[in-house]
Amino acid sequence: MRHLPLPALLITFALFAAVCAPGTGHADPAEHLTYMTEEYWPMNYTRNGRLAGLSVELLKRMWREMGVPEQPIHLFPWPRAYDMGHVDPRTMLFSMYRTKGRESDFKWVGPIVQGKTEVFTLRSRGLNARSLKDLGGWRLAAVRDVASANILRDAGLPYSGSRTPDTAIGMLARDRVDAVAMDALQFHHFAARLGCPFGEFKPIMTLCTDPLYYAFSLDTPDALIERFQKALKAVTREPGYRALLDRYLN
C-alpha cells in the first residue's frame, strides 16, 4: 500500500472530518420547504414588485425567531398553488382558511387572523337570501378551490369557477352572475382595483368565519410544524405585533 505524504494525509483527514462531522453541511429542514402564496390583500400581495402583507411579515419574523434565513416565496394564482400544495411534497401554502373539509388535507400553523367569507350581489338587483338553500337556481361565481367555492360545492350549488378574484367580480359587475362568494377583504380590494364603486355591491350572507392559517403538506415533519407554531407564538408576544396588525388590518 502506498503511503500518502504527511501534508496530503492531513488534508485528506480534514476533508473527511468536515464531511462526517455531525450537524455540518445540512440545511435547516425549513429551508427544504417550497413556500407559496397568492394575491390576497392585505394578507399577502405584491407592492412595488415585492411581496408584502400581514402573513408575509409574520412569516419573515417567524424565520428570524427560528434562526432560518429568508426563503423564496413563490406567487401563483390560488387554484394552481392549491393544486401544488396537495400534490407536491414539502410545501407551505398561505394564507388558507382552516375549514372542516380541509382539516385532514394539511398540517396547520396558526391562526394568523379570523377570516370572513360572504356572498355579494349587485345592490341594484335587490336580491336577498337567508340560507344556502335560497341560492338554489342563482347564477353563482367563486374562485376555484377557495373556501367559499368548497362551501358552494358541498351544498350542491353549481357555480362558475374563476382563476382570479377580479374575474369573478367582473362577472358580477357585468350582471353575468347573480352573486359572488368570496373573502370579504379580498372582495373589497379587488372591486376597488377594478374601479367599481364601493356602494355598487352588498353582502347578503356570511358563509363562514373560519381562521386563516399557514398550511403545510402532510409529509412535513411534526417537529418542524411545532417549531413554526412556537415561533408564531413568540412573534405574537413581541412589542411590535399590535402595530403590525394595525398597519394591515385597520
Rank of each mutant, 00 (worst) to 15 (best):
R80L: 06
F120L: 01
T99H: 01
N150Y: 15
D154P: 00
S104H: 15
L172H: 06
R153N: 05
E103A: 12
T164F: 15
T167E: 13
R163H: 15
R163Y: 13
K107D: 00
G115I: 04
G156P: 03
M84L: 13
A142C: 09
N150G: 12
L132H: 00
A129V: 08
N150D: 14
P165Q: 04
V87K: 05
R125Q: 12
R144G: 10
A168P: 02
I112Q: 01
T121H: 09
V143E: 14
E103R: 10
P158N: 08
L132R: 00
P158Y: 14
W108F: 03
S162E: 14
S160Q: 14
S160D: 10
M171Y: 13
T121G: 02
T121Y: 11
W108Q: 00
N128M: 09
T167F: 15
T117Y: 13
D105L: 14
E118N: 04
V119T: 08
S104Q: 10
I169N: 04
I151T: 02
R123N: 07
R163A: 10
G137I: 06
I112G: 01
G137V: 02
R98Q: 02
E103K: 06
V109I: 04
S104G: 07
P89C: 03
S131V: 01
P89Q: 04
W108T: 00
G170K: 08
D154Y: 02
V87S: 08
T99Y: 02
V113N: 09
I112F: 03
P158H: 12
F120P: 01
A149T: 08
